[in-house]
Amino acid sequence: MHSIAALQTIIGEALTERNFPDNPNTLYEPIKYFLAIGGKRLRPVLTLLAAELFGATIKEGLPAALAIEMFHNFTLMHDDIMDEAPLRRGQETIHKKWDINTAILSGDATLIRAYQLLAECKPELLAELLKVFNKMAQEVCEGQQLDMDFEKLATVTEEEYLHMIRLKTSVLLGAALEIGAILGGADKQDRSNIYTFGVNIGIAFQLQDDILDVYGDPSKFGKQVGGDIIENKKTYLLINALQLAKGSDKQELIHWTEINEFDQQQKIDRVTAIYNDLGIEKLAHKKKMSFAEQAYQALEAMAVAREKKLSLIEFTETLLIREH
């Protein structure tokens, strides 16, 4: 089994080698630029880990892994437009560096490349791969729509939020793993187990992100700590704080979410203080670990020798203790 670092290198090199055409430059240059920004390539790493786990070679798994990475980047390109985000990983987003129409078309071309890559897999597996890939793609769109819908709602329940992040974030991790398992010839039960593992890790991953946004180290987090508080994002932390707060804490929390003009640092400090009073960080960590435990149970149930699962265990631990 390859290490996670080795797989990240393989994927990075493959993305460079499998270049896009030169013309029209206005369509393909933004894609090359976006891919060059980098990222951890966690999702395609999962595909290769699963493929190796069940006996496929890196060569057999690589086209599908790259398809997963292309799909992920397509969603980021379009999400940046919807979020009006000026930066992605510290660099200008495509719609800012070029324009919105270019970002839409470049995103579309990236999605098409994902399907082209998937088509390079074994023909006898393609129908099953497409079934898993297309279900995931549709659910990611549903999750993004729910996320946008939540911005207009006064209240969102914890259950609604967890459902949204399952669709928007987690099913992609689950599908990345299941696709690798299909390439390795896993049976239906192990495919189900590894998908469940990925989905639960994905939810834990997003909850860790929610926690880091408030409690992360600014020098390591990579973006402004407290950004979710400033934007009134309905994260696990805010949803539970609004549910648990009483009296003056409740009134102040509602006040900060309703006013349009405020000192950003003051808002971050005051809302964080309310979170601290309510024990919200501990609550979020507990919920995160409950999903991690479900993931470990699914991993344990897989009919594969434990030593072969060590890379996935390492991957999980890296996600859960990450600082950025």
Rank of each mutant, 00 (worst) to 15 (best):
residue 74 F to M: 05
residue 93 T to W: 05
residue 24 P to A: 01
residue 242 L to A: 15
residue 243 Q to E: 14
residue 8 Q to D: 08
residue 319 L to S: 07
residue 187 D to N: 08
residue 56 A to E: 03
residue 159 E to S: 03
residue 37 I to M: 14
residue 42 L to D: 02
residue 32 K to T: 07
residue 156 V to F: 04
residue 76 L to H: 04
residue 39 G to F: 03
residue 300 E to R: 14
residue 62 L to F: 06
residue 44 P to L: 02
residue 84 E to C: 14
residue 292 A to F: 12
residue 294 Q to N: 13
residue 82 M to R: 09
residue 22 D to G: 07
residue 314 E to F: 10
residue 157 T to V: 01
residue 83 D to S: 01
residue 96 K to A: 11
residue 89 R to M: 06
residue 34 F to Y: 13
residue 228 D to A: 01
residue 32 K to N: 09
residue 255 H to I: 11
residue 310 L to N: 13
residue 165 I to A: 05
residue 211 I to W: 08
residue 124 E to V: 15
residue 131 K to Q: 14
residue 233 K to S: 07
residue 209 D to R: 05
residue 320 L to I: 14
residue 43 R to L: 01
residue 29 E to H: 02
residue 221 F to H: 12
residue 246 K to I: 10
residue 249 D to K: 09
residue 162 L to A: 08
residue 16 T to V: 14
residue 181 A to Y: 00
residue 282 K to D: 15
residue 206 Q to P: 01
residue 212 L to R: 09
residue 274 I to D: 11
residue 273 A to Y: 13
residue 76 L to K: 06
residue 217 D to H: 09
residue 106 S to A: 09
residue 203 I to A: 05
residue 62 L to E: 06
residue 128 E to N: 13
residue 20 F to K: 12
residue 59 K to H: 13
residue 243 Q to T: 12
residue 63 P to R: 03
residue 163 H to S: 11
residue 200 N to W: 08
residue 279 G to L: 00
residue 118 L to S: 00
residue 103 A to S: 09
residue 8 Q to L: 04
residue 69 E to K: 03
residue 204 A to T: 04
residue 106 S to M: 01
residue 179 I to N: 02
residue 239 I to Q: 08
residue 103 A to H: 08
residue 185 G to C: 01
residue 70 M to V: 08
residue 297 Q to Y: 12
residue 265 Q to E: 12
residue 298 A to C: 10
residue 118 L to C: 00
residue 148 M to Q: 02
residue 161 Y to D: 07
residue 95 H to K: 10
residue 312 L to V: 04
residue 272 T to V: 15
residue 149 D to N: 05
residue 277 D to A: 15
residue 179 I to E: 02
residue 252 E to C: 10
residue 318 T to R: 13
residue 155 T to S: 12
residue 120 E to V: 02
residue 121 C to L: 05
